[in-house]
Write a protein that binds this DNA or RNA. Sequence first.
RNA 1: GUGGGCGUAGCGUAGCGGUUAACGCGCCAGGUUGUGGCCCUGGAGAUCACGGGUUCAAAUCCCGUCGUCCACCCCA
Length: 421
Amino acid sequence: MTAQHKAPRGTRDTLPEDQPYWEFVREAASRTSTAFGYESIETPVFEEASLFTRGVGEVTDIVQKEMYIFKDRGGLDLALRPEGTAPVCRAYLEHGMHNLPQPVRLWYWTPIFRYDRPQAGRYRQHHQFGAEAIGEAASAVDAEVIELLWRLYEELGLTNLTLQLNSIGDSKCRPKYLEILRDYYRDKLDNVCLDCRARFDRNPLRLLDCKQERCQPIIAGAPPITDYLCEDCAAHFSELKALLETARIPFTLSPRLVRGLDYYARTVFEVTPPDEGAQSTIGGGGRYDGLIELLGGRPTPGVGFATGIERIILKLQRQGVAVPQRERPQVYVAVQTPAARVPAFRLASELRRAGISAISAAGERSLKAQMGHADAIGATYVAILGERELAEKTVTLRQLAGGAQETVPLTDVVSRIRPSR
RNA sequence: GUGGGCGUAGCGUAGCGGUUAACGCGCCAGGUUGUGGCCCUGGAGAUCACGGGUUCAAAUCCCGUCGUCCACCCCA
């Protein structure tokens, strides 16, 4: 019996045995967000494709080669969400959230789609938890979202993470820096990789991000952007660093950290685990002060992050973090005689009503097989209904773990399993 | 999108040119009279990823496709 269908490339099923990890992370994300005053938002899985081409940037990899785009039956150009920030900003505009107290603090947990080549920790459908604070430019909000992300990792028990921090300036100072960077590179293009030659024209900031061996010495000698920030950006950056120190969040300055999305301004950051591994970044974000305006709104600042759930779970598993066990039924109701079937079904039903999870035997299994089954599914108790019990209106309650068992009146079953409350 | 490794029952593996493809785990059943976990026995379950080729003969060799893993790219 070979399966005829498989989950599409780069997608996967989250099975019951995986769920404890998902629930653990989801619960921590929700709790941490709430602690920081963030409220949950959900946006559609697909959006107008132009939201991303415009918002994320035409020349980004996400837009150029990774978007799942399609026309619906009415001819609309749509895209499966390739990132979380642009949709939230769209919702902010669409619902007039500038009329709410600013900044508006939002968090989301959502599938993300990118047509990438899959690898461990890299999927075509993956999930991100993210938070956005829209409507306030102060560095305190940058510090706040970074602290939120960092607290989440702490809550989860992830260790040895590195927070990399940089400022890439704004529309005032970055163009000037890019000219300086180009000037620096101009006579070195012969010694640089092919990709970097393309970056020189298209997206010079990315030159700093190249991992090619041959480009490293050139990057090392490049002027760091942080030396060329305008006064406002420099002040914003140093305030942020001071606030992070106040919050005792350790960070590493990475003057070469740039990010793949066009909308970033000033603050950018990334969180990486100690592992080797290529796609090791587990979270990242930054400030996107121009984005709302780009999407047709009034100039509105914003800052946020996103973190990959699959990658978090991978780290949790690698670091051996214990998560709550998955829940098993408390009671398995077994029958010794066919006459007990209906009473067994009724007992299970009553237990559930009383808030005790229960399964009743189905099919024609022997009592012995039912016991084995109850054990295999991890039930805490087996409630046995046989001829004697039917006659006496009792049930034999057996605790699987120790094997202790007693016969109790049907009316006492609930209180026996859950003594008080 | 580029390069490389891998692809045998649900899972983990053995077999690497020659009769009905093996083992462990798991699943189902039995080991008499109402009871699990250990043990014993039996059973179900595999077009050996898919397609083509070489050969008297292919899971075993070759090619292609798909998937997966690793690196690049990019990112979460």
